[in-house]
Amino acid sequence: MTFFTISALKEQAGEQALAAVIACELQSRSQRQTKAGKPYLVLTFADATGSFNLNAWSDAPLFEAAQGMPDGTVVRLDSEWTQNQYGLNAANISWERLTGEDLEAFYAGDAATAEKQRHDWDTILTLLASVKDPRLSALAKHFIDDLGAKFRRAAAARKNHHARRGGLTEHVAQMMRTADLVCSAYPYLNRDLLLVGVLFHDCGKLWENQYPEKGFAQGYTLHGEMLGHIPLGIELVNKLWRDVAESPVAKGWLPLEPPTETVRLHLLHLIASHHGEYQFGSPTLPRTPEAIALHYIDNLDAKLEMMKDAYSQAGELADGIYEKQFPLPANLVAPLPAFEEPPLIAKPASDDQLF
């Protein structure tokens, strides 16, 4: 059976009802109350491309059925879908659990998303192979060897941008491409430090925004909730650094310049400061050129990803004007298309050319 992906459903659903079938995994549910005091459930469903919330009202059959579904249940939802500024809505919905080949096909994920993430992973490995500083190179290799599989399952966020299995790989790969180009424009930047800083800036999200080995439901961990990804990232890098410093590969590091301890401190600073402001969770402010560059590269990729999603999901208020999507600051305007050369018009043949 062919299913819509969640991202495709968000792109195509609008004010007019769209009849579509999707396959998705129940990620979580929470019980709420209406203003009249009636209970309802907020169900979060996910697949390889993203997630969405669906309200199950107390007088609807889905309310009772969802109470008996454990988290991680994979279902087929057949409905007439609409979408407004608050998200997707479903009318005349029916459902059934997926089994057999349909279930295995669901777990295999969306082919286009999987191919993009494979390409992004190759980008990360290629750019890391170009790092010349042996300390940073060894640290990155140790991380990839030990935690690469976990890294490739993690999301970059719980919502707003790259909030899907493998989203962290997409986010880091695009940031690395940008960082590489920025270093070409600003050659005084320490390229090795910036590239490895991009790799590690969100490494705490391996615990804060992690997925199981099979499935698309993003879970919660005590470490992620109680510490957050910045302290976790600092702790992880310190642990990996000690591992590498005690290994045979570190025997020749003592005479290297800049000193090894200074390199470690600058890398930790990139992780600690990448949110840019105290109010956004950074325990310190960016204090080096690489820290400033990393902060803005991170913010740029997140904002452009949000805008891409917003254009595909927002309702059109007027010709070329789209309704505001949280957390972007204002209504969106359709971007200006790239200039295209006009087609060449063949000149009519002269009388001399007719014979």
Rank of each mutant, 00 (worst) to 15 (best):
W253D: 14
E225K: 11
S282I: 09
V333F: 10
A302T: 07
A338R: 11
K214C: 07
H229W: 07
P327S: 12
A272K: 10
G281A: 10
A310H: 04
L332Q: 14
E225D: 13
T262S: 09
P335Y: 09
D319F: 06
Y311G: 05
S312N: 08
D243G: 03
A330W: 11
E213D: 15
D298P: 01
M306H: 02
M306P: 01
V249G: 03
G320D: 12
A334N: 07
P259D: 07
K308Y: 06
L256R: 13
N209H: 15
H275T: 03
I292N: 00
D243T: 12
I292Y: 07
S247Q: 08
A250R: 05
K239F: 09
E340R: 15
K239L: 09
Q313E: 15
G315D: 07
A291N: 01
N299S: 11
D298K: 02
L328E: 09
D309S: 11
V237I: 13
K303N: 10
R287H: 07
G315A: 08
T284C: 12
L317F: 04
H275I: 00
K214D: 09
L227G: 01
L256G: 10
A318Y: 02
L222K: 12
L328I: 10
N209Y: 14
S273C: 13
P327R: 05
L254S: 15
R242I: 08
P258E: 02
I271E: 08
E340W: 05
K303F: 08
K239R: 12
E316W: 00
A314S: 14
V237N: 06
S282Y: 04
V237S: 05
A302G: 09
V244H: 01
P337I: 04
E257G: 02
A310F: 03
Q313K: 12
Y211Q: 04
R264Q: 15
Y278R: 13
R242G: 04
P212W: 03
T221C: 08
K214S: 11
G204D: 06
A217Q: 03
D301R: 08
H223Y: 14
D309P: 00
W253P: 11
K308T: 14
A338T: 08
H229R: 10
G228F: 05
V263W: 01
S282Q: 07
